[in-house]
Amino acid sequence: MASELVTNAIRHAPGPCVFDVGWSRAGLDIEVTDSSPVPPRARPGDATGASGGYGWPLVESLSSQLEVRPTEAGGKTIHARIPGTM
């Protein structure tokens, strides 16, 4: 999930990105902040693998909590939680 979120930030945002991760009893929290205000969107998967389309549905299916928040700088932060097993 982390790789997918960071890769998308690098591919689709014009500036730098920031990766943050934290752990609690609730699970593993992953946040990726980038400079694009455009939220992720699901799109049909490309069976040839040429243009993707599988990442966002994967992030959605693995997350127990998923939110996209705008940043003060005009970009966005994506927060995803992978639930803990405690």
Score class of each variant (00 low, 15 high):
62 L>V: 11
3 S>A: 13
27 G>F: 12
29 D>T: 14
20 D>N: 07
85 T>Y: 13
70 P>T: 06
60 E>P: 11
8 N>S: 15
75 G>F: 05
73 A>Y: 02
78 I>H: 05
22 G>N: 14
12 H>F: 15
21 V>W: 13
41 R>L: 00
36 S>L: 06
81 R>M: 05
11 R>E: 03
52 G>I: 03
3 S>F: 05
59 V>E: 06
21 V>D: 05
17 C>K: 03
21 V>E: 13
64 S>V: 09
18 V>W: 04
63 S>E: 09
45 G>R: 01
42 A>T: 09
82 I>Q: 02
32 V>C: 10
52 G>F: 12
36 S>Q: 13
59 V>Y: 09
37 P>K: 15
14 P>N: 12
46 D>E: 02
16 P>R: 15
47 A>D: 00
67 E>H: 06
60 E>V: 12
6 V>C: 13
70 P>I: 02
42 A>R: 11
16 P>K: 14
37 P>E: 07
84 G>L: 09
33 T>E: 12
7 T>G: 10
8 N>Q: 13
30 I>P: 04
50 A>C: 10
86 M>T: 08
69 R>E: 08
42 A>F: 01
86 M>D: 12
28 L>F: 08
30 I>L: 08
57 P>A: 03
7 T>F: 06
59 V>F: 05
77 T>N: 06
50 A>Y: 12
65 Q>N: 00
5 L>A: 10
38 V>S: 03
11 R>Y: 05
9 A>E: 14
64 S>E: 10
79 H>T: 14
60 E>R: 14
36 S>T: 14
29 D>K: 15
44 P>D: 01
41 R>A: 09
23 W>P: 00
25 R>L: 11
68 V>T: 15
85 T>Q: 11
11 R>N: 10
85 T>V: 14
81 R>E: 00
80 A>T: 06
8 N>F: 08
46 D>A: 02
34 D>T: 04
54 Y>E: 13
21 V>F: 08
29 D>I: 07
12 H>R: 12
37 P>I: 08
42 A>M: 00
36 S>C: 07
75 G>S: 04
51 S>A: 09
54 Y>N: 01
75 G>P: 03
35 S>N: 07
18 V>Q: 14
27 G>I: 09
26 A>S: 14
39 P>I: 04
33 T>L: 14
22 G>T: 05
9 A>M: 05
68 V>I: 15
83 P>H: 13
60 E>N: 09
61 S>F: 10
43 R>Q: 11
68 V>L: 08
53 G>D: 00
20 D>T: 07
80 A>W: 00
14 P>V: 07
72 E>W: 00
2 A>L: 12
36 S>P: 01
15 G>P: 02
31 E>R: 15
